[in-house]
C-alpha cells in the first residue's frame, strides 16, 4: 500500500496575514505544516500500517524552497517527499496548483491513494482534491470522516449536512479527509532526527513538463482589481462575571425577544 499525502507549508495562522505588493500571501517567516494536513499524514501512516507495509510519500508545492513543514510530516513517519518549488509558482491559483500536484503524483508513480485535507488553512479554496482527481482521471471521495481500505477498494464515510454517506470506489483514488478524523501523533525525538536524512526530491515545474504560462499569475488567468480594509464591527458592552452575569444575558435575550 503506497499512499501519497498533499501537505502545504503555510505561514503561522496565529500571526496576522498580509499581502505582498503582487497581491500574494506574504510568506517571509518560517513556514509550518498546515495543521489540516496533519490528519491526512496520520491517516496515511495508519492505513499503511494496517495494510502491513508500504510507503507514505509527501507532496508539497511552494514558491520558495521551504522544507520545515515537510520535515515535521517526515518526522511523524512519512518515508520521503516531493517538493515542487520555483519562484514561477508565485500567484498560482487552485487549478495551476492541482496541475503541479497531478504531475508530481505521476512522477512518484505506483500510488494506491492520494490523501488531502478538505482545504488549506491559508488559501482555503477547497477545490484542489476534485481538480487533482479529474486531472489524473481518478475517482474523488471527498469530506471523509472515516476511511477504510480492503480488497482494492476504498470506502469512506462522507460528511453531509444530514449525517454521512457511505461512498466506495476502486483504487487508485483521491480522498480528502476532514479535520479531527484521527489524532495526529507528535513526532518523537527519534522521528525528528530520522527526518533530517529522509529524501526530499526537489523539482521545478519545468521538470514535470509544465510550461511557465501554466502556473503562477499567468496560469491563473485572473487579476486582482481592488484590495481594501473591511469595515470593522463595533464592540458593545463587556461585563465581568461576579456570579450573576447570566442575568445580563437573560436580559439581553429578553430585549431581543428570543425568550
Amino acid at each position: 500500500m503506497n499512499i501519497l499525502v498533499c501537505v502545504k507549508q503555510i505561514p503561522d495562522p496565529a500571526t496576522p496575514g498580509e499581502l505582498t505588493a503582487e497581491h500574494t500571501l506574504k510568506r517571509e517567516a518560517k513556514l509550518i505544516l498546515d495543521e489540516s494536513d496533519s490528519f491526512g499524514v496520520e491517516m496515511a501512516l495508519q492505513l499503511v500500517d494496517k495494510a502491513g507495509g508500504g510507503d507514505v510519500t509527501l507532496i508539497s508545492v511552494a514558491p520558495n524552497g521551504e522544507v520545515s513543514g515537510l520535515r515535521t510530516a517526515l518526522a511523524m513517519g512519512a518515508a520521503k517527499a516531493v517538493l515542487v518549488s520555483d519562484p514561477s509558482l508565485s500567484g498560482s491559483d487552485s487549478l495551476s496548483t492541482a496541475k503541479v500536484i497531478a504531475k508530481a503524483v505521476e512522477r512518484v508513480g505506483d500510488a494506491d491513494l492520494l490523501l488531502t485535507a478538505t482545504e488549506s488553512t491559508d488559501g482555503y479554496t477547497g477545490t484542489i482534491p476534485a481538480q487533482v482527481a479529474e486531472l489524473l482521471d481518478w475517482p474523488s471521495l471527498t469530506f471523509a470522516k472515516q476511511v477504510t481500505i480492503a480488497d482494492g477498494k476504498v470506502t469512506i464515510q462522507r460528511q453531509t449536512e444530514a449525517g454521512y454517506d457511505v461512498v466506495e470506489a476502486s483504487l487508485p483514488a483521491v480522498v480528502s479527509v476532514t479535520a479531527g478524523v484521527v489524532e495526529p501523533r507528535y513526532p518523537s525525538f527519534k522521528g525528528i532526527m530520522a527526518a533530517k536524512n529522509k529524501p526530499v526530491d526537489a523539482v521545478k515545474p519545468a521538470d514535470l513538463g509544465l510550461a511557465d504560462d501554466q502556473v503562477g499569475w499567468a496560469g491563473a488567468r485572473q487579476k486582482i482589481t481592488s484590495v481594501e480594509q473591511a469595515p470593522e464591527r463595533q464592540a458593545g458592552e463587556k461585563i465581568e462575571d461576579d456570579g450573576t452575569a447570566f442575568e445580563a444575558v437573560v436580559a439581553y435575550l429578553e430585549k431581543l425577544k428570543v425568550v
Partner: peptide
C-alpha cells in the same frame, strides 16, 4: 457546499478554466 465544491473542482479541471472561490 460539499457537492458544489466537488462539481466546480471537477469541472474546472475538465474544461481547463480557473475557479474563483469563497
Amino acid at each position: 457546499t460539499y457537492d458544489g465544491r466537488d462539481a466546480v473542482g471537477r469541472l474546472s479541471a475538465r474544461i481547463d478554466r480557473p475557479v474563483l472561490t469563497n
